[in-house]
Design a protein around this nucleic acid. Structure first.
Lengths: 156, 156
DNA sequence: CTACATTAATTGTATCTACATATATTTGCA
DNA sequence: TGCAAATATATGTAGATACAATTAATGTAG
């Protein structure tokens, strides 16, 4: 369905305005897809995001702040998300000896095992994007990157 | 910044995978923009969404279910959102005489006044999309609409 | 070397999503 | 007609975001 039918709005102020709503709506749809996929594994999207970041660090331990800057959603409360993952024994947290304010967080073997199980299902979500050519995909990626950099001159 | 720099991930599995992350990341960025804009008006994005929907109905009263299907985020708990708007006196809710299960919700004059104040600021967010031509914008809109319809044949 | 600012993480609170369950009303059918 | 199914909304609870405030450790200026 076109966005107009989805949210029963026959007309938008402009094509640009429609695009803003469409981005928010499609992202919400995508998140629900992810959520349903992760549910059987007792993981939420931000928790999954953290595990992916730790796996990407290839054994290197990361501080809480470092994880936060790498997350899809920057306003996540990483501290409490790590709490959850720690009780499931999928990550370890210990205080950094050099700077006792920081903590060093790493993924466990069990955490990696869960991630492996999820690689397939997550790939199948990505496959939904295959109808776009690589060239087109690059263009949309570039557009999104550009969009976020439009307001550098604004105070906010 | 490119997404790679934003989330400090030097490489993605594929351009399509990057696009998935980019959509989620950009939408999160966009939501925060909206949130900051709405804060001084004591409105949250879903509450604002509801007011917009009611204004769009041009005086026609809408049921709670009708509002939900028109929302950007379908999993909103509209009942409690309306509660909040009602205490601020920006919407009215009364039970529908024909079907006493339903409620009839409408925006008040004060609600409309708040919306008017917000039209300018919201337009300025839309302006960030102006660097894209209308043709390009249409293409991205079409792509998003298409994406959401890729999985019709999947069970889920 | 002490005092103050800075930094990293934790905790508290309000709001929201997600979803299951409950309640009230209406509809449909035997 | 009467009673079960369907429908519309409300409510309860867990997990998140958003952000302010707090705590603890480290840096730094005088």
């Amino acid at each position: 369905m076109k966005l107009e039918e989805e949210i029963k709005q026959e007309k938008f102020k402009s094509e640009h305005h429609k695009l803003m709503i469409n981005l928010l709506f499609t992202s919400s749809w995508l998140q629900r897809l992810q959520l349903n996929m992760l549910r059987p594994y007792d993981l939420t999207p931000p928790q999954y995001n953290i595990l992916r970041i730790l796996r990407g660090a290839k054994g290197e331990l990361l501080s809480l702040g470092e994880i936060t800057t790498r997350m899809i959603d920057r306003s996540s409360n990483t501290s409490r998300l790590i709490d959850k993952l720690e009780t499931k024994k999928w990550v370890t947290r210990k205080t950094c000896p050099n700077d006792r304010r920081q903590s060093e967080i790493g993924v466990t073997k069990e955490g990696l095992k869960v991630l492996e199980q999820l690689d397939g299902p997550i790939d199948s979500i990505t496959e939904q994007f295959q109808f776009l050519s690589v060239k087109e995909t690059k263009e949309v990626n570039q557009f999104l990157d550009q969009l976020r950099n439009q307001n550098l001159n604004q105070p906010i």
